[in-house]
Design a protein around this nucleic acid. Structure first.
Lengths: 161, 161
DNA sequence: ATCATTATGGGCAGAACGCTCAATTTTTCG
DNA sequence: CGAAAAATTGAGCGTTCTGCCCATAATGAT
């Protein structure tokens, strides 16, 4: 089955909003809330998943619950833009959750978690030990001032509050 | 029902790993894979959800699919640590997905998405227009060198590959 | 060792799921 | 405007899962 890559319309957005609020809701309940038939809701949800509108389930697993309450963002400068090999080395560190290649003064933004301060120090050391890494700066996350949310964008697409 | 806040054991980790690979898997399939009874799997998954080990479903919705293919991290310096009011102003911008208060030279790390470069420019302008914002630097995400993953940590807790 | 707490396993009825099909509505496009 | 294409809907079907019951086994505390 080939992805249709249809843009998300307001019905889709309302389905996703409903799912965001009630992740355990059944298809029939979702359909009823949105005001479409169960068949259509089923088809749309299947299409959304086919089109890759839903990320991996890993996204829903809380690192904190796994025993990694500390989060940090480490910016990294890489020698001569050897990004790929640096990324491989970073990927070998389990505590590295995500790595972005970014524009600007730094080359990489590394999202890491750690069990405690000492653990974080060790991980930062591992990153600095990567040969292609020139410089790095660790910014510890003190608190999450705005929790991750995508509902404001969804509401915009849902066409109402 | 009060959260039990039990630590995640290896069975939990294996359940989550299985879910990460097969998000649509039924409870019975998960139980079979992990080698426990269906009822036990059900109870454990319920407990994981109760304890907050699972983040909101919003995490699984792809901003790209919503029409926001551009991602950027904006570092912000705030005057006199007026963090709370700045966070409120940032939260009013739909394209702001998340805001972290961080240690170091900058005060905030703002995760935003945008429909295109012009859109991003507009959002950066909105952020700079916040009275308590002193300085800001936008780092555009060129590519994701390591996709978000938490399976390496899960595998560690699962006690096997 | 004994008791209390929790996890486990099996069974039951009801509901949801995945699927198909035909009819109807909506959209697309010549 | 009108025809073709696509999407939606309602219904129905059997299979499977779910939610909940309780009895038993395992675990931990005193």
């Amino acid at each position: 089955m080939v992805p249709s890559n249809k843009p998300i319309d307001s019905i889709d957005a309302r389905l996703l909003l409903e799912l965001a609020e009630h992740p355990r809701a059944t298809t029939v309940a979702l359909a009823e809330q949105v005001g479409i038939s169960r068949n259509t809701a089923q088809a749309r949800l299947a299409r959304l998943e086919q089109d890759g509108a839903l990320d991996s389930f890993e996204r829903r697993i809380s690192p904190r619950a796994l025993g990694y309450p500390l989060t940090a963002f480490i910016t990294v400068q890489v020698v001569q833009r050897r990004l790929a090999e640096t990324a491989d080395a970073l990927a070998a560190i389990p505590e590295v959750l995500q790595v972005h290649g970014i524009s600007g003064q730094f080359d990489l933004l590394v999202h890491v978690v750690a069990a405690n301060a000492e653990d974080l120090y060790r991980i930062a050391g591992q990153i600095l030990a990567i040969p292609s890494v020139e410089r790095s700066t660790t910014a510890l996350v003190m608190r999450e001032l705005v929790d991750y949310r995508i509902t404001p964008l969804l509401r915009r697409h849902a066409g109402r509050s």
